Amino acid sequence: MREKLLRGLILDFLHRIYPRDIERIGVIEAFYKEFKPKDIEKALEYLKDKGYVEEREMEHPVRRFEVIRLYKITPHGIDLIEGTLCDNGIAFWEDE
């Protein structure tokens, strides 16, 4: 259940900053107090594979040969947030 909640939290976070994108490290920093970085990265991969989040890579502006990964919610992800779509693999609140 925590995986589903984390996915929902990440989508909600990306929706709040839309239309901007954010670096991978920024997403990890937003949730690292509650979730392990490897779990956050796994959730991002799930969301990307499902088409709810897009990943864009760019060269680091200063460090040569380093790549920065940026994430942005897709229209499909916005539809999920707004309730137009349903995905049982994502929760937007924690059941107690």
Results as ranks from 00 to 15, higher is better:
Gly89Lys: 14
Ala43Phe: 05
Glu82Leu: 11
Arg69Val: 01
Val67Trp: 06
Thr84Asn: 12
Ile10Thr: 10
Asp79Trp: 06
His60Asn: 15
Ile73Trp: 00
Glu96Asn: 14
Leu80Cys: 06
Tyr52Asp: 02
Lys4Tyr: 08
Asp87Val: 05
Arg20Asn: 05
Arg20Cys: 00
Glu54Ala: 00
Val67Glu: 08
Arg56Pro: 00
Lys36Gln: 12
Tyr18Ile: 08
Glu96Arg: 14
Glu29Gln: 12
Leu5Asp: 08
Phe35Trp: 14
Gly77Ala: 02
Ala43Lys: 05
Phe35Val: 03
Lys50Asp: 03
Asp87Asn: 10
Asp12Met: 11
Cys86Ile: 14
Thr84Ser: 08
Ile40Glu: 07
Ile17Pro: 01
Phe92Gly: 13
Asp21Glu: 09
Glu57Tyr: 03
Ala30Gln: 13
Ile78Leu: 11
Gly51Glu: 03
Leu85Gly: 04
Ile81Val: 15
Lys50Thr: 03
Phe35Leu: 06
Val62Phe: 11
Leu80Asn: 07
Asp12Gly: 09
Leu70Arg: 14
Tyr46Ala: 02
Leu70Asn: 08
Gly26Pro: 02
Gly8Cys: 12
Met58Pro: 01
Arg69Tyr: 09
His76Cys: 08
Ile81Thr: 13
Pro19Met: 09
Phe92Asp: 10
Ile68Tyr: 08
Ile25Gln: 12
Leu6Asn: 07
Arg64Glu: 15
Pro19Thr: 08
Ile10Glu: 06
Arg64Phe: 02
Asp12Cys: 03
Glu96His: 12
Arg24Trp: 05
Leu6Glu: 08
Lys4Ile: 06
Tyr46Ile: 02
Gly83Ser: 04
Asp79Ala: 13
Pro61Gln: 00
His60Tyr: 11
Thr74Phe: 00
Leu6Asp: 07
Trp93Ile: 07
Tyr18Cys: 09
Asp95Asn: 11
Leu5Phe: 11
Met1Pro: 10
Tyr71Lys: 01
Thr84Tyr: 07
Pro19His: 10
His76Gln: 14
Leu70Met: 10
Lys4Arg: 15
Glu55Met: 13
Arg20Leu: 03
Lys33Asn: 14
Arg69Lys: 15
Gly8Asp: 12
Glu23Trp: 05
Glu66Val: 12
Arg20Met: 02
Glu41Met: 15
Lys72His: 01
Arg20Pro: 00
His76Trp: 06
Ile40Asn: 06
Gly8Glu: 12
Arg16Leu: 09
Glu34Gln: 07
Pro61Trp: 00
Arg56Ser: 00
Asp39Asn: 11
Ile17Ala: 02
Arg56Asn: 02
Pro37Met: 02
